[in-house]
């Protein structure tokens, strides 16, 4: 039995490609399950309540739905050019829609040739080499460095961690305004951002008034969905 196919009869949706991608992703899922079980057991061992750990899993699952559907949209968008298996792999592992799209565009038009297909796949893969390997060498040192900061000055350690997250959030705040120079359509993400922010503020208010704790759990997913839904009429008005 041979798996070698004829390059002339190349099919970017060949079943063998699906099989290869499924095997790779099965290993990635196995890694996720391994770390999940390990972290859960550790949480229980250090005295964290199971209710909190279970709730965290539920929150993470709910939070993921809307962004994951957006990733799926990216796969659909790339599937015309590259078939389904390659975008399925690339958007399920380290990488991003923006990078994969740029990398895919090293070749103009739809890929119908095996040589072009493997070349595009190679370009997509090579761009993520540093992201795949560098954390393996640096993660331990970075984590130990953080630990050292916290040991030396606990208050500064807390501020340091908050500053890291706020640095990222501030960059994305700027990014949202990055198209305002275009005029009307450039303001669409700004308005979506504001809708999401207002919904979050309303959730906070509602939580304060009603004391419904479930609002706290789902406030951010609600904001994401509200922002995405409102993007449609906003685009109709400004687009």
């Amino acid at each position: 039995m041979t798996f070698q196919l004829n390059a002339a009869a190349f099919d970017k949706n060949a079943p063998i490609l699906y099989a290869i991608v499924a095997i790779i992703l099965a290993v990635v899922v196995a890694q996720a399950v391994f770390f999940l079980v390990r972290a859960y057991r550790r949480g229980v061992k250090i005295g964290m309540s199971k209710a909190v750990l279970n709730k965290t899993m539920l929150r993470a699952g709910v939070f993921t739905i809307a962004p994951a559907v957006a990733i799926l949209v990216g796969i659909v968008a790339l599937s015309q050019k590259l078939g389904i298996p390659l975008p399925w792999l690339r958007l399920s592992v380290i990488g991003s829609f923006s990078y994969e799209t740029i990398a895919a565009n090293v070749f103009e038009g739809n890929v119908t040739d095996a040589t072009v297909y493997v070349t595009v796949a190679l370009v997509m893969t090579c761009g993520m080499l540093v992201s795949m390997f560098l954390p393996l060498f640096t993660a331990k040192k970075i984590q130990r460095g953080l630990m050292h900061i916290r040991q030396r000055d606990k208050k500064w350690g807390e501020i340091f961690m908050n500053a890291l997250f706020l640095g990222m959030i501030s960059a994305f705040l700027g990014y949202v305004f990055g198209g305002v120079g275009e005029g009307g359509s450039g303001w669409i993400p700004v308005l979506v951002f504001l809708v999401s922010a207002v919904v979050m503020a309303l959730c906070g208010l509602l939580l304060k008034v009603t004391k419904w704790r479930w609002i706290n759990d789902y406030a951010l997913p609600i904001c994401i969905v509200a922002g995405m839904v409102c993007a449609v009429p906003i685009t109709m008005l400004l687009g």
């Binding site: 705040l173 809708v195 922010a197 919904v199 951010l220």
Partner: peptide, 9 residues
């Protein structure tokens, strides 16, 4: 507009 919706909240 997933990113603006996510980072707004």
């Amino acid at each position: 507009n997933v990113l603006p919706a996510l980072f707004g909240g």
